[in-house]
Design a protein around this nucleic acid. Structure first.
Ligand SMILES: NC(=O)c1ccc[n+]([C@@H]2O[C@H](COP(=O)([O-])OP(=O)(O)OC[C@H]3O[C@@H](n4cnc5c(N)ncnc54)[C@H](O)[C@@H]3O)[C@@H](O)[C@H]2O)c1
Ligand SMILES: NC(=O)c1ccc[n+]([C@@H]2O[C@H](COP(=O)([O-])OP(=O)(O)OC[C@H]3O[C@@H](n4cnc5c(N)ncnc54)[C@H](O)[C@@H]3O)[C@@H](O)[C@H]2O)c1
Lengths: 206, 206
DNA sequence: GACACAGTGTGAATATGTTCACAAGCGAGA
DNA sequence: TCTCGCTTGTGAACATATTCACACTGTGTC
């Protein structure tokens, strides 16, 4: 029952699209409808749902409620996971303002900064702490996910602290890959890389 | 001479790492050093550079200057490409503040919003315009890349305007896939999806 | 020289991801 | 009940990406 990264991404997308685009009102949906929403092929959708062990009917397609519950069973897995954000700068604040209510599976419960002027307040429901409290807060709240929005120079040290405190997954926005011990999952979102890739292919395939 | 997306991403990363981590002082670098920086395998680095037609020496490794020029030849391709950003909100402003000087191949030259209170100013060197000027500004400045940081509801319409104005690549932060005509490249950066993926795998592989 | 060494370049093997193509299921209508 | 038209589920083919493994190369040493 191992599900690939790409499939997990799309399951997350399917669920949100069904929720956001008012498909949750409908009782059933076909693979080609989901495919149109997610911008992929019907075969891809069926393969993903097969992997997720979600069954449809050949006459009515997939039951929306079953679909949602099935995807939740995989992504949610019992309880909401908590995340901590480090670096309450421009990007960090944008994320804190955006994220509440976004995901039924993850919530950002604490934010950290080394700059005393950035901490103490509650930003969009999220408490802010000095970076030195990271270990204790992470342990007390059983936080399992870290988000790094500090400058590049601080990123690796923050990641090390997070991992030492028990965090098992890191979403990194700093423009440098983070080295982690095995068993820790890391995702590197790199704006410059994405833009340069786009620049290359937008020239190329036109 | 077709280079895959993954390879382009890594080439962009290699170049930036060499630049940021003071490797540009050194005259040569080995595949295993680049691999350590980029957090991948030496074989991967050699394969990428082979694809990029960059040759090294078996005794000294790769010449840093050759490497930089070689990657630039691929990513830059003669002239800097210009980008336009739509949606000067929390995320849009964070990007405008972050991006200047980040990439030698792409620069954000114009930003657009539908809210009159957001426009008229110059943010970090980038002029802001009403969204209705998008077509003319894009054409006048020969902008080829679009960045969407508007709410979900507006995203597809903005994308359509961008494409009509001649933009060939779109970086989309709105939580919905954008439909584009063939020949237009699109990249969907979805925070919720990334976090949910991380949540899943951080539980799983520990 | 000739040998050892530490690296590159790359065909081949492997792993991962996507699409094809079609049997089988189901409901509607005759 | 039979058949038609649509769908799902899925083995197999295909495509893409990574890793292995090793011949080859330039340099330093004796
Ligand atoms: N702003 C963007 O749109 C954007 C986009 C892509 C990537 N990034 C990356 O995200 C990171 C943050 O960008 P930003 O624009 O928000 O920068 P910023 O300077 O506005 O914010 C950085 C924050 O990190 C805090 N910080 C610094 N050192 C710290 C430490 N050791 N521990 C805890 N907190 C620390 C600072 O006090 C500040 O609040 C950077 O690495 C940047 O490269 C930003
Ligand atoms: N803030 C984040 O960290 C974050 C993270 C991931 C994704 N996103 C996505 O990015 C988008 C923007 O997020 P935000 O937090 O900056 O929101 P925001 O509300 O702060 O900003 C949205 C901006 O878009 C402008 N806008 C609205 N309709 C427009 C239109 N038709 N044409 C031009 N401009 C228009 C608004 O005036 C506003 O300035 C959203 O789709 C959000 O889902 C945000």
């Amino acid at each position: 029952m191992a599900i690939s990264k790409k499939t997990i991404e799309r399951l997350s997308l399917y669920r949100r699209l069904i929720h956001d685009l008012h498909y949750s009102n409908r009782s059933t949906i076909f693979s080609h409808e989901l495919a149109a929403m997610a911008h992929c092929t019907p075969a891809q959708v069926r393969r993903d749902l097969m992997t997720a062990d979600i069954k449809g009917s050949s006459s009515t397609g997939y039951d929306v409620a079953t679909l949602t519950t099935g995807i939740n069973a995989i992504l949610l897995h019992g309880h909401i996971q908590k995340a901590a954000l480090a670096g309450i700068g421009n990007l960090g604040r944008a994320i804190l303002s955006y994220f509440p209510q976004r995901s039924p599976t993850v919530e950002i419960t604490a934010a950290f900064d080394s700059d005393p002027s950035k901490i103490g307040r509650i930003i969009h429901g999220c408490r802010t702490y000095p970076i030195d409290d990271l270990a204790s807060v992470v342990k007390d709240h059983a936080i399992t996910i870290g988000i790094i929005t500090t400058p590049r120079e601080a990123a690796q040290a923050i990641a090390d602290k997070m991992i030492a405190a028990g965090i098992r997954g890191i979403l990194n926005f700093a423009p440098i890959p983070i080295r982690v011990s095995t068993g820790v999952e890391t995702e590197h979102l790199d704006l410059t890389m994405s833009l340069e890739k786009l620049a290359y292919f937008s020239r190329r395939n036109s």
